[in-house]
Design a protein around this nucleic acid. Structure first.
Lengths: 156, 156
DNA sequence: TAGTGTGTTCAGTCTTTATTGAACGTCGAT
DNA sequence: ATCGACGTTCAATAAAGACTGAACACACTA
């Protein structure tokens, strides 16, 4: 079997670190990736201090990481009766939300480039055509990713 | 008209700097973005030293930027008869090639996460299901982006 | 009211990455 | 062979960003 010799704790720890690296590759802070990974793996809510403890990082880092993940709607802050601490858990449709964040960035880039296009004199046919292709690339990417998000949402 | 008061030179310069920033946002070196922008805007081949001169950066930076853009198949190195210098120009289907690079990264991430999944004991249904969702996200993204590349290729 | 536990902020430090510029090997011309 | 122009490499520097930890404001408890 594929999981021979691995305990759950080892698999979880490996997963957390692996996602940290992948997320870092995508240009986001590694700690944010690790927070996401642990919340995804465990599924249930974890407290602010649990996150700092489990990941062995400062509270400041947890604060900024959860803020980033909240703004991308990957995790949500929840309350636990009888506990003053903030708890966090992965949201439903986390990945579609992540995609929507990328969609927004691509739309913004497309709009930026379309602004540039508007500033090129109409006599410049070649540059206008090529810059328009660049804008079209971002438009196609945003539309395509939006469709991927929809598919994931419908399936899940 | 939208291009009132802007010369071609101004529009080109603004475009180059804007793409530099956008590309930087995506995690790539700003100079690579500026090289790409100038080759896209002008359309025609530019020499190694022209790039260094026009962008006011060191030859070392041009060397590493063009190498990066070449590996992503965004630009190609071409010869000019009677000139020893390397020349560069934007390739056909540059944007589909750019997308394919992202597709590869996403596929690699999906495979990585599928490896992690294989290490989680089968008794752990919850974690296995959620980690599988993560892998499915990368799979869906790579497939979706691949389709976007195909669409752009067919249209252009 | 003081005291404790909470999350945020921010100045400082550390790490990573981008960029420079000089040294180098190569090629072609003379 | 020497020279000069070329592109690459790499050590050093600069710039950007992540992370820490202490100070802080707030809320709840006693």
């Amino acid at each position: 079997m594929a999981d021979q010799g691995k305990t759950v704790a080892e698999a979880r720890s490996d997963f957390i670190e692996k996602i940290g690296v992948i997320v870092q590759t995508e240009g986001l802070p590694r700690i944010a990736g690790r927070v996401l990974a642990i919340l995804l793996f465990d599924g249930e809510r974890l407290s602010f201090s649990q996150l700092a403890e489990l990941l062995q990082v400062s509270r400041g880092s947890i604060s900024s990481s959860v803020r980033l993940l909240e703004t991308q709607q990957m995790i949500k802050r929840v309350a636990k009766p009888g506990d003053r601490q903030d708890y966090f858990q992965i949201v439903e449709n986390a990945f579609p939300h992540l995609i929507e964040a990328s969609v927004l960035r691509a739309r913004r880039a497309a709009a930026d480039i379309e602004d540039s296009l508007a500033e090129i004199p109409h006599s410049e046919e070649g540059p206008r055509r090529r810059v328009a292709e660049f804008a079209a690339y971002y438009r196609a990417m945003s539309d395509g990713m939006s469709e991927v998000a929809r598919l994931l949402r419908d399936k899940g």
